[in-house]
């Protein structure tokens, strides 16, 4: 297991390294100097000089590449033009918000998705399965930001059950420093998390249903029944443990979805996360921020896949034992 993990970790680092490299060359392939876009006249000559030395724009390309790598490793992602602060700092402010949103969405995604998928598989072919199955297919087919808009319209504007955006109430809770403000934060989190979570849950349910149906018709499920186990235990222990294996792969796939979706959902709900930071940066041609966000997101995706692989290995004894003996 240890060697396998080390190998897997090395591969992940290699992928992130490749992403960094590609990012570097994309920046250099772009018209103009990477740090001197046409619109950034508002930068003082002094800042420009400092940036030039910092990123070694006066040196050769290989040298610049090495410098870029060194800076990235040190967590120096450059200076934001628009925000007039280091990109790493701006990202560090935004990451917790995106992370909270993604985590809440992930919980809704899997809690709802797994429950629905199991329900559908157990009731396969009956009314409940057909109705919820088509409903899930529809939600799964919606543009996530559009679902956000609709939820915002219905629950935020018409019913006024939820706030229309932001992290917290700007007047009463400018900072999250009391339990009441913690609740206020959760209340603001509800709609964006639900938006992302519902679309994810629709997809999770479809996978889970298929996986359960596949497992239910296998011989060992009949063995479990022949043992005199309750139907609940047959389905939720014997069948589900096996049906969860393919869903773990889905867990790895959920990461790209959550981060991609966050870009759009954060824009809809004015949620000050990484996605909104990146989108605003694009409009201001502030691409150190854009590339920084892209880098970080890729790292998250790779990490998500790694976690999924590890979970898979832990959950499936066939893989676990093989990697132990390997």
């Amino acid at each position: 297991m240890a060697t396998w993990l080390v190998r897997r970790l090395a591969a992940s680092i290699a992928i992130v390294f490749a992403v960094v490299t590609i990012t570097f060359f994309v920046i250099h392939a772009a018209p103009g100097s990477p740090f001197l876009p046409a619109e950034s006249q508002h930068l003082t000559p002094e800042t420009l000089r400092r940036l030039s030395t910092e990123f070694g724009l006066d040196r050769s390309l290989p040298e610049q590449y090495l410098l870029f790598l060194r800076n990235v490793v040190r967590g120096n992602l450059g200076q934001s033009f628009a925000l007039r602060r280091p990109v790493a700092d701006a990202l560090a402010d935004a990451i917790p918000n995106t992370f909270t949103l993604a985590l809440a969405a992930l919980i809704i995604d899997f809690a709802l998705g797994l429950a629905l998928g199991i329900y559908q598989a157990v009731r396969a072919g009956r009314v409940g399965d057909v109705v919820s199955g088509n409903g899930a297919l529809l939600v799964n087919s919606m543009p996530v930001f559009w679902l956000g808009l609709v939820l915002l319209l219905v629950f935020g504007q018409w019913l006024r059950w939820a706030p229309v955006g932001g992290l917290s109430n700007p007047v009463l809770c400018p900072r999250l420093d009391s339990p009441a403000c913690g609740l206020d934060f959760l209340w603001h989190l509800t709609l964006p998390a639900l938006t992302l979570g519902l679309v994810g849950a629709a997809s999770t349910a479809r996978y889970q249903r298929a996986a359960m149906l596949e497992v239910i018709r296998q011989d060992f499920v009949r063995t479990a029944r022949a043992k005199g186990l309750r139907e609940r235990r047959v389905l939720l222990v014997h069948a589900l443990r096996n049906a969860l294996l393919p869903v773990i792969t889905l867990f790895g796939l959920a990461f790209p979805f959550l981060f991609t979706g966050a870009v759009l959902v954060e824009t809809v709900f004015a949620w000050p996360g990484m996605g909104r930071l990146a989108v605003n940066a694009i409009f201001q041609r502030d691409y150190p921020v854009v590339t920084g966000a892209a880098l970080l997101t890729s790292a998250m995706v790779v990490l998500g896949n790694l976690i999924a692989d590890v979970l898979y290995a832990v959950a499936d004894p066939r893989i676990r034992v093989r990697s132990e003996t390997a």
Partner: peptide
Amino acid sequence: VDVGLAMPRIFVLLMAVALWE
């Protein structure tokens, strides 16, 4: 392909749009 799958499409496209106006 591993690398390609690791870079979320929307970010790649956003980068492209940001860089090429």
